[in-house]
Design a protein around this nucleic acid. Structure first.
Lengths: 112, 112
DNA sequence: CTCATATACAACCATTTGGTTGTATATTAC
DNA sequence: GTAATATACAACCAAATGGTTGTATATGAG
């Protein structure tokens, strides 16, 4: 199984993009249904331009994509990028598990 | 099973803390073995104080804890917080899966 | 054609971030 | 006691972030 890992720079962008409640909410909405930038902007108490910037940050991180549909830009959440972030976190957890495993081996060895 | 979810503010801190390659590396090292702040600082081409700040950011996010051992402060990675972050990402993926599931239902309904 | 809508983007500004150096304190080594 | 080590933390600074307003362009409605 080939897994396309995030580069360090991509990982920075993805986690940075996720470090904001508004952006996480935009990701949720765009994973749940097709929405335009205007529709997204209508939900938040900030300017259209501010929401546009949040969407741009998510797009740059690969967490959403935009496609033109007539006048509108439809924003789509990208589950693959979320999965990549999960895999990075899993690799951290694995490091911890391997350490525990080594510790178990050491204790077992001490018993013999 | 009770899962302690991250508050929005905690989630912001956790993802913000993970959005830096040096900090991710510190998390890896502290999950792998017990290390002091000085030992961590020796690995990076920046001042001790800068590394101290990175550790403080990780501690504030709950990704590491510090315990005093004589003069040293031993930094420990906290796998639980990583798991909480994973769960947040899983909940995003679930939203997408539920959407696909709804779409499948709709298509199946259209066939009958 | 004209008007309204949807988007893009530049310029600006306050706050936060990520680094620095300097100083202080506690503990260990001699 | 003195010197070296480990940490903490304040003050400072440049760059990035997250918001704003203003302007421009493209598309759809009448």
């Amino acid at each position: 199984m080939v897994v396309y890992e995030l580069s360090e720079e991509q990982a920075n962008k993805v986690f940075r993009a996720l470090a904001d409640a508004t952006r996480r909410d935009i990701v949720r909405r765009t994973l749940n249904a097709e929405v335009s930038v205007s529709e997204i902007a209508a939900s938040y108490d900030m300017s259209f331009a501010a929401v546009q910037k949040h969407v741009a940050a998510l797009e740059s991180a690969g967490l959403v994509t935009k496609i033109a549909r007539c006048r509108e830009r439809i924003v789509r959440g990208q589950p693959d990028t979320i999965r990549h972030a999960q895999e990075l976190l899993s690799s951290l957890e694995d490091i911890w598990r391997q350490r525990i495993s080594r510790l178990d081996d050491f204790l077992a060895d001490g018993d013999k």
